[in-house]
Write a protein that binds this DNA or RNA. Structure first.
Length: 414
DNA sequence: GGCTCAAGTGAGACCACAGTGACGG
DNA sequence: CCCCGTCACTGTGGTCTCACTTGAG
């Protein structure tokens, strides 16, 4: 993946499709993801403005550049001058939004270039789902979905505004401004904070253990940039060293057992303390691959000192979650650390049952083993084509031949 | 404990075809 | 060294088949 669209190899890539692991221009993005209902559910986000290969998770206001977690870390974590840079989270989207709709989602992008649509349609459907706004999870089904029938482009803003209510914070009022300091090298933990502030109406839905969707909120973004070039046109090419970035949405599972009305401040404080604890950790892979280190992501830690007795656990490394999954989603690799980092000082932390610990290690090893068989899509274009190919008993058929399964319309020709 | 059988599980094959890379001119 | 044409190979997903595992009798 690089500067050019992975599909057409002509246009500059602008969005990153995580399920396809592909960087696409807006035109190909629409074409590819309008192929069928499944592809429309792919969550996409901006491509990192520096490395041009990873999905951007935050926007650096100072530099007017979208950054993936790695570049964000490299750019802000080790540079004294960059420590004070404010950053904002970037949402994902699904469906086939028009350029105007994209501009609404990413309000800082005021001038999206027109999207060439081979079908001549305008804004087929913009599906903004709760998860897609809040994170980059691959499982949009679990979130509420708002279908913005955007042909007329009417009321979309209203609906988006309503999303703020769902998220529990207005894009304007509660945008996660993220000052960077030395204790926040695990910067993306900032991205966790909004999710931790989930509202009453949705926290149960979010916090349930649904496998891949132990995700986190990224608040809606409402940055303002002068023009399109500021958003997409600048490639700084000083990404420096890469460290694997781990997606927190694949790692987090939240279990909020108490009322959440007052959880925001509490959780924010807790997460910040965790950030500090994690800031000096080594890379996740090195830790996880070391059998001598108890790095079970399922290990739970509780915020015992929190009035609401909130607890948090990590169980995202399922068989379905690949390295790419947690690489993509803005979670510092340091968050996949060993148990000691996760346990806040306190009586409980030293009395973690050995049996539970052993079983946790076993679970982790099993999941890690499963992960090795994760299928990685190497050619998004082939997948896109296969996704629309007709079959007979699961086998591809020649174009024009009789088929019994059509992915596009789920119909059978007999 | 050893054997047989049914049920459950998982891996691999199959298909078409556009994309990819190697190779020679 | 570069360009172009040719050709063999690759990868993609849903379904089926078969080998293997597990549990009961």
């Amino acid at each position: 993946m690089g500067l050019l669209c992975d599909f057409c190899r002509e246009q500059r890539s602008m969005v990153y499709c995580r399920p396809d692991a592909a960087c696409l221009c807006l035109s190909c993005d629409r074409n590819v993801h309008s192929a069928n209902a499944l592809s429309r559910r792919h969550l996409r986000t901006l491509v990192c403005g520096r490395c041009n290969s990873q999905p951007a998770g935050v926007r650096c206001i100072e530099e007017n550049v979208s950054l993936c977690q790695t570049c964000d870390w490299n750019g802000h974590g080790d540079s004294a001058s960059a420590l004070g840079h404010k950053r904002q989270a970037i949402n994902c989207y699904s469906g086939c939004p028009s350029s105007a709709e994209l501009s609404r989602i990413w309000s800082f992008a005021l001038d999206f270039p027109p999207v060439a649509d081979s079908n001549g349609e305008q804004g087929l459907r913009l599906s903004i789902n709760e998860n897609s706004i809040s994170n980059c999870s691959d499982s949009p089904d679990n979130g509420r979905t708002v279908d913005l029938c955007s042909a007329g482009g009417v009321n979309n803003l209203d609906i988006i505004d309503n999303l703020d209510t769902w998220i529990g914070s207005s894009s304007n009022s509660a945008v996660a401004m993220m000052p960077c300091n030395a204790d926040q090298l695990a910067g993306p933990v900032d991205l966790v904070t909004p999710k931790l502030c989930c509202t009453e109406t949705r926290n149960h839905e979010i916090c349930k253990d649904d496998g891949l969707n132990e995700d986190f909120n990224v608040d809606d973004v409402d940055l303002t940039f002068e023009n399109y070039e500021e958003l997409f046109g600048v490639s700084h090419n000083h990404s420096g060293q890469f460290i694997g970035d781990v997606g927190i949405d694949d790692l987090f599972e939240m279990d909020m057992s108490a009322a959440n009305s007052n959880c925001q401040g509490t959780f924010t404080a807790e997460v910040e303390s965790m950030q500090a604890a994690c800031s000096h950790a080594a890379s996740a892979d090195s830790m996880m691959s070391n059998p001598g280190i108890n790095a079970d992501p399922n290990l739970c830690f509780s915020t015992r000192q929190a009035p609401s007795s909130l607890s948090l656990s990590f169980s995202g490394l399922t068989g379905e979650s690949s390295g790419g999954d947690y690489q993509d989603c803005g979670m510092s690799s340091t968050l996949v650390m060993g148990e000691p980092l996760w346990y806040p000082p306190g009586p409980e932390s030293s009395s973690f049952p050995t049996a539970s610990r052993d079983s946790a290690v076993i679970r982790y090893k099993e999941k890690k083993r499963m992960r090795k068989f994760e299928k990685k899509i190497r050619y998004a274009s082939r997948k896109a084509r296969t996704d629309v190919r007709r079959r007979v008993k699961g086998r591809f058929v020649k174009a024009g031949d009789a088929y019994d399964y059509d992915p596009l319309c789920q119909s059978r020709s007999g």
